[in-house]
Design a protein around this nucleic acid. Structure first.
Lengths: 193, 193, 193, 193
DNA sequence: GTATAACCGAGACGGTACGTCAGGTCTTGAT
DNA sequence: ATCAAGACCTGACGTACCGTCTCGGTTATAC
């Protein structure tokens, strides 16, 4: 079922993604050019363009490769689930690669609706579903009443982490912040917000 | 008292800022080039460069011009102050200009420490001071005990708004979100987080 | 045997030379900018710079393209050869393109020895060789004694044409002038000057 | 009859012309900018522009200042007059200042008819008149018949000198050339061309 | 004596053109 | 159909210089 011509070099696939990740961390998204990636990967521009339509698509692929699907936690309590989720999110937003890449991708994505949809289905929707499952389980357990606003919950606990990830001059994403967001999340789930 | 050379054309000052604002809203920060701004303003590149060192500085100026110093509210109660603050922040983050410009600026700012400092002193520090005043007044009134973590408070109430502003596919920055953040802010100020 | 990269667009080659020629005739060499050429040719500056190092090189190429190697005449007599040569030179110096371009090139060439050498080998040396051949043939035929000063001959017959070509207010390069220079050339070749 | 305002600084007048002459010889006409002249003369651009409309006008003034009206020679014979004239012209065309400035002026003059007229009345017309006087005297003396073509004569004797002045790679303007042009001039005056 | 006017320096302005960089595309010849 | 190599065309860059203008101050003539 494979095409007729010469097959793609698998080592190039990997070299390109690795080169992109390294360049992102070292020089930031603004300095990420397909040219630089190709050079760092020991190949040429067309070889990169054959795999990715542009630097945004490449960066999204790099992020997806590194920060794949979150491990769905089921700790038995909503507090435990939320704590695990925030620990995971904290780790992700603290990662230098994520910090370097995130803003640039988001900035460029605004212009292209197609790209926006791709990012959404790859990153946002799964997380949202995960949060919903978490809340549903808590409702089933009788921990909280039904009817919690899952979107609100998600944004309240994720927003502060994102905020600190964006500007390096703000405080770290430390345990105190994570604990506070967990408390906020519980209150929101309980319908107190 | 005035400098010695030929004075700057005030109409150009305005035309440039207006052209930049319009282009930002229409095409986004990624498509904002000094070239395009100059053309749209009916002038030439050097005239723009004489006023701003680059597109980031220009964008920061546009934002500063539109979203000048926040009106310091003193409503007599912490709840009132927080509500006013969040209403103001909500309006700002809902503005298409802010949404179009913010991410690009933040992305480019990461690389240049000098630029970062400029953005910080122009936008972040004043807000932070404002929040601190608000809390101090509440302590003086006896509404809350001293010792609240002002930074944490600020990030908890601002982060969710920013989050929704970043991706147009998420929910709006509606009254429900603002009310929730006010409640979260009060709890934080009261030391309950 | 062709290079490896993408071949040059032949239509651009032509469009650039044509645009340059047209602009030269219309506005003169002083107004010939790479910018204007690129615009008139429907392309961009780099495309022009890839082909020519600057406006002087471009102009030299245009002249070389239009006033290629002179057809070597051998009419059987020195008088016939000289008449043919002067007819050809007269036509060349009467051409509006040559009149528009010549002075600017010569003015700029003075500064750059490398450019000077290029112009010399492209335009001066061939003509000089041609004149020498003409005289040698006449000597072989027995028309004139050996030992004529070829350089002197050349300058005596070319100088007056150039002089009239330079300033449009002087007289035309008419048949009377051409006939006079032929007579002068014959006298010079015969060693009477 | 002098204007009302502050009179012009005569030392500046001189400093500007001298600076221009020096720069012309050193760097050539192509590198002659009003800015450089002003700096070398120890003044500012507006002071130069107050005196000359541009670099061409300035250069013309410099040339006029240096190569003023030719001393009208009347040696008693046409041959003597022509020899004197050519000696003078040879000296002029050999001068580095003339060689540096001439071509640039002529190139720029083509575009501007007004400038062309100025150059003509300042340089060409006087010379032409001089040649005519010379021929008229010879006719009066009975040396030659009336009806000689003065313009032709002028171009035949001046052209070769100009030609050698234009390109530094050609031969010098030596005595042999001057002698040849004198002979040519005599032949022309005698109606033999 | 005072007003007027043109000059002076200093210096920034608006704008044209420059020469270059980097982005994304295309062609070639070979695997 | 892929690979490397490499040149292509284009949009945009940031800079240099031009000729002009504005300023505060000076120096002559004219009222």
């Amino acid at each position: 079922m494979r095409g007729k011509g010469r097959p793609r070099d698998a080592r190039l696939d990997e070299a390109i993604v690795e080169a992109a990740a390294e360049l992102l961390v070292r020089d930031g998204f603004a300095a990420l050019t397909i040219d630089a990636v190709a050079r760092a990967a020991g190949t040429t521009r067309p070889a990169v363009y054959r795999r990715y339509a542009g630097r945004v698509e490449l960066t999204v692929a790099v992020l997806g490769h590194r920060f794949g699907l979150a491990p769905v936690p089921d700790t038995g309590s909503l507090r435990g689930d939320l704590t695990a989720l925030q620990a995971h999110q904290g780790e992700m937003f603290r990662d230098p690669l994520m910090q370097a890449a995130m803003l640039g991708v988001l900035a460029d994505v605004r212009a292209d609706p197609q790209l926006l949809a791709a990012v959404q289905t790859r990153f946002l929707t799964p997380r949202r579903a995960q949060t919903k499952d978490m809340v549903d389980r808590a409702v089933a357990r009788g921990e909280i009443p039904a009817g919690a606003d899952v979107e609100l919950l998600n944004d309240l606990v994720t927003g502060p982490l994102l905020f600190r990830a964006i500007l390096p001059s703000l405080g770290d994403i430390d345990d105190k912040l994570l604990a506070a967001t967990v408390t906020v999340g519980l209150a929101c789930a309980a319908g107190q917000l």
